[in-house]
Design a protein around this nucleic acid. Structure first.
Lengths: 155, 155
DNA sequence: CAGCTTGTTGATAATGATTACTAAAAACAG
DNA sequence: CTGTTTTTAGTAATCATTATCAACAAGCTG
């Protein structure tokens, strides 16, 4: 089972091997990102971390999200209004609801062939790929929402 | 055949139907985006448009790229360092070279089943989907480039 | 332990992309 | 023309992100 603690231990070992340290801030930032499936922005992570470390700096959050992403402990994705982070580093796809803006995880497709096809067609070396779906989630379909809700805070 | 002029005519008609106009600026911005497959940034479009309209404003470029995207004449995609635009509005996928940063078009997969699978699994209404591939393009493989080249201008 | 080196933090300034604002120009309708 | 609406250029403002830096902490080394 993946526990908070086993994650921290693994992170600690990996970071040490690079001459980096798993500081209190870094550990809590990692825990916050892994504890939600909301694909949070840096600002969201900042707000959450502040509950446990009231004196943390926004720069520290950004700095560590970058570090953790570079070391593979979180994934980073580009969003029209900025970066979002994902504590789920297992391969999976995403569904973005065009009405409420929420991003849902979607189980990945069995896709060995997809990369191979692109590789042979282009001659490129395909290291990775990801599919993004867009549409309306169940809740928004039920409520008949069609367009982005204005004024809602980005999570 | 799709000519510059037929595009302009179609754009003009669509825009008029919305009470908008195909101004000189708007038309040239559209032409610039459609004339390249470099998935340009707003700054790139601005530089190109300025060759033909030296007094154009950067704000005008942004404003019109947004308008043209909203009307479906160009596609917009989020990139880690900002928005990129695509004059190719036919369905297709993208390959991003992690070494040189270039974004290549990839022919789309026959994919009726992909959306259906997600729809039945989630209950969501899937309107669209897009696959992003990451790897090294032929040129970068040949030159043995592995990491992003620093200091190059985003196109 | 004291001293040295290096990594890290919080605070804040700086940057870069994008958007908002506004007065003037252009496009159109009658 | 004349009035109305849209659009523009120029610029200020905003927002996310990054850089800078002095103070601090952790890990050696002797």
């Amino acid at each position: 089972m993946i526990t908070k603690n086993s994650v921290a231990l693994a992170a600690d070992a990996t970071l040490r091997a690079r001459g980096l340290r798993l500081t209190r801030q870094r550990r809590i930032i990692l825990e916050v990102v892994r504890a939600t499936d909301a694909h949070p922005t840096a600002a969201f992570v900042y707000r959450r971390v502040r509950r446990r470390l009231p004196r943390v700096s926004l720069a520290t959050v950004y700095r560590n999200l970058r570090t953790l992403a570079a070391e593979g402990f979180v994934a980073e994705r580009a969003d029209p209004s900025g970066a979002r982070f994902d504590g789920n580093t297992a391969p999976h796809d995403h569904f973005t609801c065009v009405a409420c803006g929420r991003i849902y995880d979607v189980p990945p497709r069995a896709d060995r062939a997809v990369r191979a096809r692109v590789a042979t067609r282009t001659g490129f070396e395909v290291l990775n790929h990801r599919t993004e779906f867009y549409g309306r989630c169940v809740a928004c379909r039920r409520h008949g929402r069609r367009s982005p809700v204005k004024g809602q805070r980005r999570s």
